[in-house]
Nucleic acid binder design. Structure first.
Lengths: 211, 211
DNA sequence: CAAAAATGTAAGCGATAGCTCATAATTGTC
DNA sequence: GACAATTATGAGCTATCGCTTACATTTTTG
């Protein structure tokens, strides 16, 4: 029975016995592993079920489509990432920008270090169609939080459009940490990482600070 | 299961008669159009051939695989983009950073405005093809050029590691222009665009300049 | 324990994708 | 005009994919 070509990303049924919770966990675990190893295109639902040690039917009992399955993995990952960022922002809500920026840049790097291989696949390979736009949503969340901080610290800041300023800071820091973690690990070795944090912090602070 | 798929992205044969050059052009044209309209997954080689008004066999005479076909489109596009950037850099080679930065930020925006819809598809959906190589290579080219500029203007610059500085500038400007063009067109309206260029220029100049 | 509900299984369907190949049409050479 | 390259054609092969469905097993309920 097909209900049109509707994009259905909600779980088909929720696991209410312990047994099925284990099944769902195994499926998500396997999806993550297969995505990392094979990439999105080659990660077939049959293969994922096999890796999970579960029949293909069970997979489709909990996830109505491949997209829904991947969306669940994305959700898991982005929530973990957002947790890191949000914590950092709360922690520095009252700190001056010099301190806050440094802390947030560190947090951004940490956030990107939560399963970086998965992060790479999600960021680079997942088609941005349908419900799979959650990754951009995370960035938007971060953007709102940062804008709140900037509004609260207006007096320390060389006042431009706070909207544009928040956009610039979030986009720049996100891109820099992303690129550093995924493409320039040489910049983030133990002895160099701090230097990198210094530089990115400097970028943001000099841009924002009255001078 | 056999997964011995070879990554072959070189043209199968080169067009040496005028007739076949037209065919190749039509195929590339059609690929671009179909990619924009349908995205990578739904852009089937059969459909592309049909749109090009060419048989599927002809397509495979010049491109050994779908990946090779898309790679050719990527090449075309990135070359066009690099041309814009390189021109700008040559133009400001002798200018102080205030002037140079502004020009380069403008150039970056222009480069992203070369067929932005295609750029979006390539940036968002294509990384699974050819492993990002071509697009990352472009960024690496830009990075080398900028590093050359920074080396030549060492005396104007608050000296940090020039390698890291170039990485930060290129990554930040690329990400900001990319995000602005694709996700915040409201920031680039005729009356606001200049303000955005000012801001990004400021970001870079304040970061680099002795102060 | 028996009936009902929840969970699990896997063969296989329908669709479509990328791609091949035998063949035909066109062009270049003499 | 004859003959060989070159270029173009498209029916159809093979493979795989996402997903359904008919059925088996386990757990809960009463």
């Amino acid at each position: 029975m097909h209900m049109g070509r509707k994009l259905q990303t909600n779980p088909r049924k929720s696991a209410c016995q312990e047994r099925s919770r284990l099944t769902v966990d195994a499926i998500l675990e396997a999806t993550t592993r297969v995505l990392i190893k094979e990439g999105y295109d080659r990660a077939s639902t049959n293969k994922i079920a096999a890796v999970a040690g579960v029949s293909i039917g069970s997979l489709y009992q909990y996830f109505p489509s491949k997209e829904a399955l991947v969306a669940a993995v994305i959700d898991r990952h982005t929530q973990e990432q957002m947790r890191v960022t949000r914590n950092a922002l709360v922690k520095v809500a009252a700190s001056p920008i010099e301190v806050a920026a440094r802390e947030l840049v560190s947090a951004a790097i940490d956030a990107h270090r939560v399963n970086p291989k998965l992060h790479r696949v999600l960021a680079e390979q997942i088609p941005r169609v349908g419900r799979l736009q959650n990754i951009e949503a995370t960035e938007r969340d971060a953007y709102v939080l940062v804008r709140g901080y900037l509004d609260a610290h207006r007096d320390e800041i060389d006042f431009a459009d706070p909207d544009v300023a928040a956009f610039i800071c979030v986009t720049a820091v996100e891109a820099l940490t992303h690129a550093a973690v995924l493409r320039r690990p040489d910049i983030l070795t133990d002895e160099k990482a701090e230097k990198f944090v210094d530089e990115v912090t400097d970028l943001v602070v000099r841009y924002l600070r009255k001078s």
